[in-house]
Design a protein around this nucleic acid. Structure first.
Lengths: 195, 195
DNA sequence: CACCTATTATTAGCAACTACTAATTGTAAG
DNA sequence: CTTACAATTAGTAGTTGCTAATAATAGGTG
């Protein structure tokens, strides 16, 4: 149970709770916050949060809204971009988990490491759209679930719309993967107009 | 509007309607079938179909579980294994979707194609644990969301615990990707460093 | 003190039900 | 034709989770 919060604090928390679990009724919320149902209703009203039933309908109808937020914002890049100099180099980090590993051995599946390298390589190219053309990968050492991978990418050469990017992935200072990727930038003048 | 159906026929249709659109209330159904609300309720009862609200909750919980599967990478193998001859060759299929693509172009991210190729290559190796060592990838043509990819893998050479697997991925007969992967089988000492 | 805000209480009403009982209609068999 | 029985419809009471509105109460602050 939660007690003695300022109105603002409480409303913030209510918002978080509802976001996490849209199935919470006003009654359950009032119990959680040890506050009257009416206050919960007032809070919802002030924040413009619809009643539980409408929230459930939204969730049921929405296959896309969450996905859009997720796929457009977060999952554009595998791992977390730490530092980037467009056209030159970049660093990304990926914390590996059990879901990325083979169940039996705990070794991270190779394609997760490739995904980290590939998406980092693509994101350092200073262009609207970039596609991978050719890649040479070398896995040096198995990576176990729980290890944190640091990927460094560098544009080694570039000619026209063709970039050679080399990526080194290390875990705890030791190199576990290297790759050379040829990336092509695509300037789609057809579809886009603004910068 | 629907009229003059036998009880059984009507119940069948009601079932179909609800399956198609779980958001239909008893009132709307009664109007659709020009029958009383009570009859709809009796029909639902006989068929064990819950009320609209509970149906919506079901849908809402389904879509949220779908999200989990989507955002977390649970599948052991990317794509669907169609045919396999251990140690020799295998075929896998991947139906591409929007979540696998760049939002603005609809082009499938390269790592999904690699994942398909890599996991197929690993699964045709007849061993407990197999790891990818070196890979050469070549993306021939962009793949757009919605296309169905067919991956064929073949063990080209093998010496000791080292296998050279070549993978060809086609979409609609046209080759979109080829790769040569060197896979190592690991029998016991997983923790040992590999060559 | 009055004023103000926040909170709580109370009431009426709605949608979409469950659960139950009762009345009506249809239809087929004795 | 009448009875029997199923199918349908009607009606009532009670539930959940609300909206909307109005009023009462408690706690400060100037």
């Amino acid at each position: 149970m939660i007690r003695d919060l300022s109105k603002l604090e409480r409303q913030k928390r209510i918002k978080e709770y509802i976001l996490k679990d849209p199935f919470l009724s006003d009654k359950k919320l009032s119990e959680l916050f040890s506050i009257s149902v009416q206050t919960i209703r007032l809070d919802r009203l002030e924040m413009g949060i619809p009643e539980m039933r409408k929230r459930i309908v939204q969730v049921a109808k929405n296959t896309s809204s969450k996905d859009k937020v997720k796929s457009l914002k977060k999952e554009e890049i595998i791992g977390e971009l730490i530092d980037i100099e467009l056209g030159k180099n970049g660093i990304a980090i990926l914390k590996t988990t059990k879901d990325m590993a083979f169940g039996r051995t705990g070794i991270i599946r190779s394609h997760y490491i490739f995904s980290l390298a590939d998406s980092l390589a693509i994101s350092i190219i200073d262009t609207e759209v970039a596609l991978t053309g050719i890649a040479r990968l070398s896995y040096k050492k198995p990576v176990y679930a729980g290890e944190t991978l640091v990927a460094k990418a560098r544009v080694a050469r570039s000619r026209g719309n063709k970039y050679l990017v080399s990526v080194h992935v290390k875990s705890d200072q030791k190199e576990v993967f290297t790759g050379k990727l040829v990336i092509f930038s695509v300037n789609d003048k057809v579809k886009k107009e603004k910068a």
